[in-house]
Structure formats: C-alpha cells, structure tokens
Design a protein around this nucleic acid. Structure first.
Length: 816
RNA sequence: GCCCCCGUAGCCCAAUGGCAGAGGCAAGCCCCUUAAAAGGGCUGUGGUGUGGGUUCGAGUCCCACCGGGGGCACCA
C-alpha cells in the first residue's frame, strides 16, 4: 500500500540527521563542481504554490547533478529585509524581526518536508547583521570608486509605501510592490552609477545568449535603451553658453524649425524671456500636477509654452523659436531637443498644435507631413540641406557629424534610457547606509572597523511611515561624532533598497560564515559562476540586472574572476487556477500545504513537473495531483514486487531482453530530456517504463526476472529527481541501503539501444502505401529496391517513377 | 502603434522537414470482485487557428490574417 504520509514520516527524520546534500569543500575532492541556485524566497508567511513549482524544478536539476556524481552546491537562504515585515510590525506593535524570523522558520520546515536537496549548513538571512555588514562594506567600496553618490533631482515617490523607488521599481507609472500611483518629487538621494556599466551590461549579453531566455535579454536590452546619434550645440540668443541637444537624426538638422526645452528643467526658467516668465510658471505648475500615467500617455495632446527667445541653427544659421514642453524629458539626453516636425511624429504633433513651420529635408516619396499630419521618419534622399543634399540618411549622418566636429559645434554621441539606480529608501527594515554627515567634513563613510552599523531597536508605532526614514527619530542612534574630525555629526537615516541584498547573495553562499569580507574569494573562484539559476520572470530588469551590475563591479575590484553571474537561467511559469492568478479577492487560492496533506509531497512535486514545459504556466484546474498519486502508487508496487522477488546485486544480463531494451531506451531518452530541461516528457518516459515493468510482471517473464529488477531500480533512481520519498522507500524495498539520491545515474548500454529491425514506410506521392520490416542499417539502394518490389506499391505505379527519395531506414517516397 | 512567443483530440500536452499521438486527465467498454472501491486491460476520424507559398514531403520553414499571452511605447 502506498501511503505518502507514512513515507514522509519515516524518511524525513532520517534525512534531517545528516544534511545529505552538503557541498564538499575538500580540495582532495576532485569531482567537477556544479552550482545550482533558486532565487531565494521572501519570508511572507508559508511557502505557496509558486514556491512549490520553482523549487520542484530546481530540485530536478540539482538532484540530477547529484546522481551524475558532481560536487553540487545547492544552497538556500532568505531575502528577509523588506516592507511587509515592517507593516506587520506596525500592525502588531512588534519588531519586524519577530515576524520575519518566525516566517523563515515556517518556510524552512516546509522546505524540509518538501524534500528540496539543499545544503542546510549554508543558510543565510539578509537581515542578519552578519550579512548586511557586508552590504555596508560593499557600499563603501562603491563610494570610494565613485559608484555610489548622492544627488538631488526629481525622483519617483510611492505615497503608499512612503518611500522613493528606483526606475526599475515603477511599472507603468505604478509602484511595482504595492500598485499605488507613483508621483515625482524633488529629493536628494543615493544612487549607484549603473549607467557607467551600460555598455558592458549590453555587450556581455553575448556571453549568456545561449543560456538565458531570449525575452529576458530583450527586456534588458530595451531597458538599457542604447541609441547612437549626435550632440549638437545651439546658440541661444541672450545666453553666453550654447545649449547642447542629443539627436538620433543629425541628418535632419536643416529641418529643425523649433527648439524645445523640458518644462521641468532648470534651463527653461533660466532662459525664458521676462514677458513669458509668468506663462512658463503657470505651465510648470500645471505639468507638476499631472501623474506619471497622465504625463506618459501617448494619447495626450501636446502642450507647451513659447519662451520668447530664439535659438540659432549651427549649420543653417536660421533663427528658430524656443519652447518649453512636457513631452521632452529633463533627465534624458540634455533635457532639450531640436524639433524636426517633418520627420518626427511627436514634433509634428506639436508643430500642428502651435502653428509652427514644417520643413521637409528627407525626400521619402511619401506625402508632405505638413499636409497629412503623418511624419516621415524613414529612409530617403536629403533635400534642402546644403551640403547634405542628395545623400542617403546613413551618408548624411556621417557627413553632418564630420561638419559639426570640424566647426566644433557637435560630435557623435551615444545615449541610454537606463538611469542610475536610486538605492536609498525612507524605511526601517533594511541596511542602514554607512555614511555620517558632518557639518565640516561633509559625507564621511563609516570606517570599515566600525561596521556593521546595526539598526536601532525600533518597533510598532515607531515604524509608522512619515515621509522620512523612521531611523531619523532614533536620536541616540543618529547623533554620533564624525569619524574624521570628531565633531558632532549625524548618521544617514536612509536604508538600502533590498535589491542590494540580492545582488551578491549567491557569492556569500560559498561561505556564509566568512568574516574577512563579503565572501571568500577563493571559494567563489571554485564554485562560480552559477551553472543554473531558476526563478521568476518578474525580475527581468530588477534583480537580474542589478546582480549583473554588481558582478561586473566586483570583477573590476578583482574579487570575482567572471563577469556574468548566471550562465544559464530558467524562468518557470506561474501556478494559476481556472485561468487566473490566485488571489484573495478572487478566492481561487490553492494552499500548498493543503495539497501536500491531501496527496503527499511526491505527488504535488510530480504534478508540478509533469504539467508541461517548466516555463509554461500551470493551471491547477487542468492538472491532477490525484492522478500523480496514482502513478506513484503504481511505480511503488512495481518496485515493491520486484524487491520481494529477487535480491540486489545479481547481474541483469540474463534478464528478459525486450524489457531490458525498454529500460535502456528510457535511460537514454530521460538523460537527454533532463539535460534539455524537458522534464514533463522525462516523466512520461518514466510512466512508460513503469507500464512495461508492470506488464513484464503480470504477463511476461514475471517479477523475479532480473530485467524487472533492472527496470525497477532504474525507475527508483529516475523517480528520485521528482518524488524523493517513494523513490527512497522503493530503493529500500529493492534491498538497497539509503540513499537512492546518491545511487548514481544509470547508463544506457549501447548494445541494448540497437533495434533488430525497424519499420520503413513506403509512400507513393506522399501517401503511405506499404510498410517494410528492415534492418536499421539497410543501405539506401537496398531499401529503394525493396520498396519498388512491393506489390502494394506497384499497384499505385504505372511505369517507372519520376523520382524516389530514400531516407534509410525509415522512409521511401516515390513520386510517380 | 511597434516587437517577441504561442495556437495539435473535450482538457493538459508529445512529435531531428518524413506514418499526426509518446504520456496524462476526462469519457466509454472489458477483466477481477457477491457488490463497490482499489487494481489490471482495451478504446483516439482532430488532420495540427485561417488562407497562401516553398518542398518529393510542412504541425514543423516563409508570407498574410485571426485568436491568446508577454514586452516596449512621448527616451529625441
């Protein structure tokens, strides 16, 4: 009788005794190493169905590598800083740590029951001072290298969470975490200079092209948004310094009929003519009222205000009016543009709204944009452009850059959509920024020997968001003496974005108790980079971009010898229910613990794996854990009956050849399928092997045949990747000592893979007319001859065929 | 609006350009059983969203369209 709960009760305590999946650091261990990593969980209560899927998938890979004899590092930890803990603490008048660490314990126990092959000795929590110490250490190193800096400017502010956000954390104008509408605020904040690494983040994608899903790379490419063009300097009448604009279409310079400055840029206020100052102020006030969503809407009518002054086209000498508008962004390029309405739709919309001239400078063969209202941004021949006339777009771009450089009024330029990573947060449950502000010395990093700067003991109402960090209220903590001059000074009261924590945690797993630095450089050299990373697609431009950035900086610091942290990435799908994401409001949630109680760990894991390709969503309404349980019971009976009928250790060579062939074909296929991450198909093959063994027991050579034992043992080992409990019990019933997880991956015997005969299909004009049993190594000529002799085939032929295509040994197609 | 991915049986899903069906769910039938459950077995006419094309041969490659999902979307 297959009783999953009894198997769990039996085996879980035994596995817990020995940390069986510990990675081996011993230098004498020469086995090749593999590093398998699942994105670490946030401890928001117990594990849910999504965890159930991602960790089941990752565990197939890890357990497969264990079976193959690799020295495998498969660690687990918790991403345990973050807002939910803080909100829970406010609600319960408690400390965020209480909620956090209680949830971590719950999840850890659930992971153990779920039988994921972690090395439990490497567990880490990012909210431990022993961990965030090194966030601070790394911050200081970044600061020293000019990669962490503070600046004022417009930032994204989430009114719900009462903190600023990085650009990556604003999705369609809403807070990525809570969904509130994000507003813009003028604030001084800390940034990481990720833009310095924009080119490398783009160019190094070539190294991981084959291991990452294409769409993630595309999303990162779009996010970084590299474009090439030129910087062009325009004189502004009445201003000493020229103003530079960035354009991707310098070839259209002669078509610039007006000039636009971002309404919120300081430049607009500076250059506005006195008689237009009031109009500008009114316009700016109006723009400031708009939410990001409204401002970014492409449907929105163009708005703007004339600044009462003119700019001078550096090549044509033409005077063009200067406007301020909100369709020009202050933080991209130089916050100002030359407007070429004929060849840019946005400029054209603006020109038509305000009656500005439209001048065609690229002849594209399309109707005049000034009349149609449709800009012509495509290829063409330059006209009305002095020295550029007659050139193609590409030629003109090259030529005009030459001209601009000669005259000293411009040059080729590259621009990025990527902005620096805003890392400070006005919240409590995170890593304090290790900076002290001194009136005399300015920003002073906390000396390394005074790290970590630990969080003060705040709880409950102290943590209520009030727009500034709760740390500011802890005056005893804030007021310190300056490390440089000893004078009175204050600690920085912001904490770090929790994405800092997750940007390097995979390095610390190599030695989570290391005290001489964030990670043991030597051990990372041995384990890194990660061979397989598994996690959700939601981190495409968040965690995955930041971790790549950190790795490159650490590489430049000489601390890691690779430039990409994750060689292969697998994005699992979501677990949904009845076509929709599970949610409280829909009431369609499925509880992982409940599923396990009902069907057992093995059946739940098997259901996750068998449902479909790992990157596809699983609709829980479409799959059947009960059926999985049934299959496991079937497999269990085969293992039990084989175990009872024969003893381990006897040779298989005398066993039933037909069953042996099935077994070895299964080994061959499952090996390839697991290598290719085709786990659902691999399970189907295991099901077939189970059926073949069942048949052999009931209606073939019987349970005592060595081939039955071979099939059952093979099944136990393969099943251990997905259903560790039943595999372990089956292995024991087959007379082996635990653990099946280390039994070793079976090898297919090539002699048993060859077929004595195969069925060759003979087609006439593409239709199957006969089948021939032939040797698998039949020659093309022999097969063709055989096919042409066939009576069935000849019935469809009159005279000699026009053409015969032979694909020995499987197919002949005769064209009459 | 632009870009990417996916449409195979009632459902989930297989199928190096070569017989459309491996596996599972559901359904139906049979065996076992006093009966039921459990167990064992059997049953696949949808021609691969639609229309073209390439090819001896297309689910697979190309084009267009339809449907679903995702990404980007005033970034000059």
């Amino acid at each position: 009788m297959y009783d999953p709960q009894a198997l769990q009760a039996k085996w879980l305590p035994r596995w817990e005794e020995s940390n069986p999946f510990a990675a081996v650091e011993d230098a004498a261990d020469t086995r090749p190493r593999k590093y398998m990593l699942d994105m670490f969980p946030y401890p928001s209560g117990d594990l849910h169905m999504g965890h159930g899927e991602v960790f089941a998938i990752g565990d197939v890979v890890a357990r497969y590598w264990f079976q193959k004899g690799y020295n495998v590092l498969h660690p687990i930890g918790w991403d345990s800083f973050g807002l939910p803990a803080e909100n829970a603490a406010i609600k319960r008048n408690a400390h965020p740590a209480e909620w956090t660490y209680a949830n971590i314990e719950t999840q850890a126990n659930s992971f153990k029951r779920y039988a994921i092959s972690f090395d439990w000795s490497r567990r880490l929590h990012t909210s431990d001072p022993e961990y965030y110490h090194w966030n601070q250490w790394l911050f200081t190193r970044f600061y020293e290298r000019g990669l962490a800096y503070r600046k004022g400017g417009l930032v994204n502010w989430c009114p719900q969470d009462q903190t600023v956000l990085a650009n990556e954390q604003v999705v369609a104008g809403k807070c990525e975490r809570c969904g509130a509408d994000v507003v813009r605020r003028e604030l001084t904040q800390w940034y990481f200079k990720i833009t310095d690494y924009a080119d490398r983040l783009l160019d190094d994608m070539a190294r991981i092209q084959d291991g990452w899903p294409e769409r993630i790379l595309t999303m990162q490419r779009n996010w970084i948004g590299r474009s090439t063009g030129a910087d062009v300097r325009f004189e502004i009448e009445g201003r000493d310094e020229p103003v530079t604009v960035y354009t991707t279409r310098p070839d259209t310079l002669y078509g610039a009929t007006f000039f636009v400055v971002a309404a919120d840029a300081p430049l607009a206020e500076e250059i506005v003519a006195p008689e237009q100052a009031e109009a500008l102020a009114a316009y700016r006030a109006e723009v400031a009222k708009l939410s990001d969503i409204e401002r970014l809407s492409t449907e929105k009518e163009k708005t703007g205000v004339f600044l009462g002054i003119h700019a001078v086209n550096p090549v044509s000498g033409e005077r063009i009016p200067v406007w301020a508008a909100d369709y020009v962004l202050s933080d991209y390029g130089h916050g100002a543009i030359m407007a070429v309405p004929a060849h840019d739709q946005r400029d054209l919309d603006f020109a038509r709204k305000f009656g500005l001239p439209v001048k065609v400078v690229v002849h594209t063969g399309l109707a005049d944009p000034g009349e149609t209202g449709v800009a012509t941004p495509g290829e063409g021949t330059l006209v009305n452009s002095g020295p550029l006339d007659g050139l193609t777009k590409a030629e003109a771009i090259g030529k005009i850059i030459e001209v601009l450089e000669e005259r000293g009024t411009g040059r080729a330029a590259v621009n990025y959509r990527l902005r620096d990573w805003l890392l400070s947060r006005q919240r409590f449950w995170g890593t304090p920024i290790p900076i002290i502000h001194c009136v005399d010395c300015g920003e002073v990093p906390v000396p390394d020997d005074q790290l970590p700067v630990t969080l003060p003991d705040l709880r409950g109402a102290d943590l209520k968001p009030k727009g500034v960090s709760p740390l500011a209220a802890a005056t005893d903590w804030v007021n310190v003496s300056c490390p440089k001059c000893g004078g009175p000074a204050q600690r920085d009261t912001d904490t770090m974005d929790t994405f800092v924590d997750s940007s390097w945690y995979f390095l610390r797993y190599c030695d989570p108790d290391y005290t001489d630095g964030p990670f043991d450089v030597e051990k990372v050299r041995k384990w890194g980079p990660i061979d397989q990373y598994v996690g959700g697609v939601e981190h495409a431009v968040l965690h995955l971009l930041y971790a790549r950035f950190f790795t490159k900086v650490l590489h430049d610091m000489g601390m890691v010898d690779f430039v990409e942290p994750f060689e292969r990435l697998l994005n699992q799908g979501q677990v949904i229910n009845h076509g929709k994401a599970m949610s409280k409001t829909l009431g369609n949630g499925v509880d992982l613990g409940q599923q396990i109680d009902n069907y057992g760990v093995d059946a739940v894991r098997l259901t996750m794996i068998f449902a479909g390709p790992p990157e596809d969503d699983i609709d829980w309404a479409d799959v059947s854990p009960a059926a999985s349980q049934k299959f496991l019971a079937r497999a269990f009976r085969v293992m039990t009956e084989a175990g009872a009928a024969s003893a381990p250790g006897t040779g298989f060579s005398g066993g039933d050849v037909e069953l042996r062939k099935v077994t070895h074909r299964t080994i061959d296929e499952v090996t390839r399928l697991v290598d290719g991450h085709r786990f659902n198909v691999a399970v189907a093959r295991m099901m077939e092997l189970t059926s073949a063994a069942r048949k052999a027991i009931d209606a073939g050579p019987g349970a005592a045949d060595p081939a039955v034992r071979e099939a059952a043992e093979t099944l136990a080992v393969m099943l251990s990747l997905v259903a560790p409990y039943v595999a372990e019990e089956g292995w024991e019933r087959l007379g082996h000592a635990p653990s099946v997880a280390k039994a070793g991956w079976p090898q297919a015997d090539p002699a048993l893979l060859v077929q004595e005969s195969v069925t060759a299909v003979v087609q006439v004009a593409g239709k199957v007319r006969d089948r021939l049993e032939v040797s698998p190594d039949i020659s093309e000529a022999d097969l063709e001859a055989l096919a042409l002799e066939s009576e069935k085939v000849r019935a469809y032929l009159d005279g000699a065929p026009r053409k015969v295509i032979v694909r020995a040994p499987k197919l002949v197609n005769i064209v009459p």
